[in-house]
């Protein structure tokens, strides 16, 4: 009996170990964030009144409940700053996703149409910037966009402008940074769905008299839609929470919620408000994240059934 139980347990270790790890270090921290978002701010280390200890009896439970405060959420609601930061993050992420698609789709399309022999090289060239540091790639734009940077120097040499333009610390720089950083995330899923399309479909459309554009619009675009959707999620969700890009390329005028969270935490040392911002971000992002996850899961099941 005992031996069987032990055997059953060892057989389940591949489930238990990662499950346990994720439960402790991924799921539990979210509940801690939720709990601290209801805590009161206090000067000290840590900068909040601890509101979590062992519950001793029913009356103690109510005392603990009373210690919870909605104060941080009241701040979020009453101060326009947070609303604006949320809306501006949504807008920046949406616009950047659109432009990433606008640049990424033709690129992926070109890759899928390139000769088979060079496709792996092109694929590697898309992935390579993703392996080189994220920070370095954003930093590179700083040198290009600054007042005496490359772009201004080139434009002045070409006599397009006489005075250097202010490009750094603008919303434009933030958009550019996000599009540049997340472009590979758009190209890869789009390419992989385009590459799977059987050439006989386009031939069939052409045989039936469709023009090049009609074939593209009515056959290729619908078939590549799963890749487009995955790419949009992969760009939009992380862009929404960006902190480093607006921090390095944006000015004080560029509001983004991820940056606001970091400011509350590192500069203002107001952990309950930072936690409340994180909770609101999760609430906003949970829908796209769950949708993305469903799509992934269904895709995997389909592949399993095919294979």
């Amino acid at each position: 009996m005992m031996i069987r139980a032990v055997k059953g347990l060892t057989r389940r270790l591949p489930i238990i170990i990662p499950f346990f790890w994720l439960f402790v270090f991924f799921l539990t921290p979210f509940f801690i964030v939720l709990q601290i978002s209801f805590a009161e701010f206090e000067y000290g280390q840590p900068p909040y009144v601890p509101n979590f200890r062992k519950v001793e009896g029913l009356s103690d439970f109510f005392t603990q409940l009373q210690m919870m405060t909605l104060y941080s959420y009241e701040i979020l609601l009453s101060d326009n700053l947070y609303w604006k930061a949320f809306l501006s993050s949504l807008r920046i992420a949406a616009v950047a996703t659109f432009f990433a698609l606008l640049i990424g789709y033709p690129l992926a399309y070109g890759m899928a149409r390139a000769p088979r022999s060079i496709q792996p090289i092109l694929l590697m060239a898309i992935i390579l910037p993703f392996w080189t540091s994220y920070l370095i790639r954003i930093y590179a734009w700083k040198a290009i966009l600054q007042k005496n940077g490359f772009l201004n120097n080139v434009l002045i040499k070409l006599s397009v402008i006489t005075e250097p333009l202010t490009l750094l610390s603008t919303p434009f720089a933030v958009y550019l940074g996000i599009i540049y950083t997340y472009l590979p995330f758009m190209v890869l899923p789009v390419y992989s769905s385009l590459e799977k399309i059987d050439p006989s479909y386009t031939e069939a459309a052409r045989d039936l008299g469709a023009s090049g554009f009609t074939t593209f619009w009515r056959v290729i675009v619908p078939l590549s839609l799963p890749g487009v959707i995955a790419g949009c999620f992969l760009v939009f969700i992380p862009a929404m929470g960006e902190w480093v890009i607006p921090d390095l390329l944006g000015g004080s005028g560029t509001l983004m919620i991820g940056k606001q969270l970091a400011t509350e935490l590192f500069n203002n040392n107001d952990w309950p408000v930072a936690a409340a911002v994180a909770v609101c971000m999760i609430v906003v992002l949970i829908v796209p994240i769950v949708v993305f996850q469903r799509v992934q899961e269904r895709d995997q099941l389909r592949r399993q059934q095919e294979g």
């Binding site: 992969l234 929470g241 969270l261 936690a275 994180a278």
Partner: peptide
């Protein structure tokens, strides 16, 4: 897909707690 700031703050608060 989780924005890194959220993973970051939740682990930080977890460790501090």
């Amino acid at each position: 897909v989780m924005p890194e700031v959220i993973t970051g703050i939740s682990l930080l608060l977890f460790f501090v707690n």
